[in-house]
Simulated scan of single mutants.
Amino acid sequence: MEKINLYRKLDRWSGIKFDHVKVIKKSNIDIKNEGGDLYACDISETRAQLFICHLSSDTNPDDVVAMYNNWVKEYSKKIKPHRNLPESKK
Rank of each mutant, 00 (worst) to 15 (best):
M1W: 06
M1P: 01
M1T: 05
M1K: 07
M1C: 04
M1D: 05
E2K: 11
E2L: 08
K3W: 07
K3T: 05
N5L: 11
N5I: 08
L6T: 01
L6M: 07
Y7C: 02
R8V: 02
R8A: 08
K9H: 08
K9C: 07
L10E: 00
R12K: 12
R12V: 03
W13N: 14
W13M: 09
G15T: 09
G15H: 10
G15E: 12
I16G: 02
I16Y: 03
I16D: 03
K17L: 13
K17N: 12
D19K: 06
H20N: 14
H20T: 07
H20I: 00
K22G: 05
I24C: 10
K25E: 10
K26T: 04
S27Y: 04
S27H: 09
N28W: 13
N28S: 13
I29F: 09
D30W: 05
D30T: 08
I31G: 05
K32V: 09
N33C: 09
N33Y: 15
E34H: 15
G35R: 01
G35V: 06
D37W: 02
D37H: 07
D37Y: 08
L38C: 06
L38V: 06
Y39G: 05
A40T: 04
A40D: 01
C41K: 04
D42M: 03
D42A: 12
D42V: 02
S44V: 07
S44A: 06
S44K: 10
E45R: 14
E45Y: 13
T46Q: 15
A48Y: 00
A48P: 01
Q49S: 07
I52M: 02
C53F: 03
H54Q: 12
H54V: 05
L55M: 10
L55N: 08
S56H: 10
S57Q: 12
D58T: 13
D58W: 05
T59I: 10
N60G: 05
N60F: 02
P61M: 01
P61H: 02
A66S: 14
M67S: 10
M67E: 10
M67H: 09
Y68E: 00
N69I: 02
N69F: 03
N69V: 04
N70I: 04
N70V: 05
W71F: 10
W71A: 01
K73R: 12
E74C: 08
E74N: 13
Y75T: 03
S76L: 04
S76M: 07
K78I: 11
I79M: 06
I79K: 05
K80I: 09
H82S: 12
R83A: 15
R83T: 14
L85T: 11
L85E: 13
P86E: 15
E87I: 14
E87P: 02
E87C: 11
E87T: 13
E87S: 15
S88R: 13
S88H: 10
K90Q: 13
K90W: 11
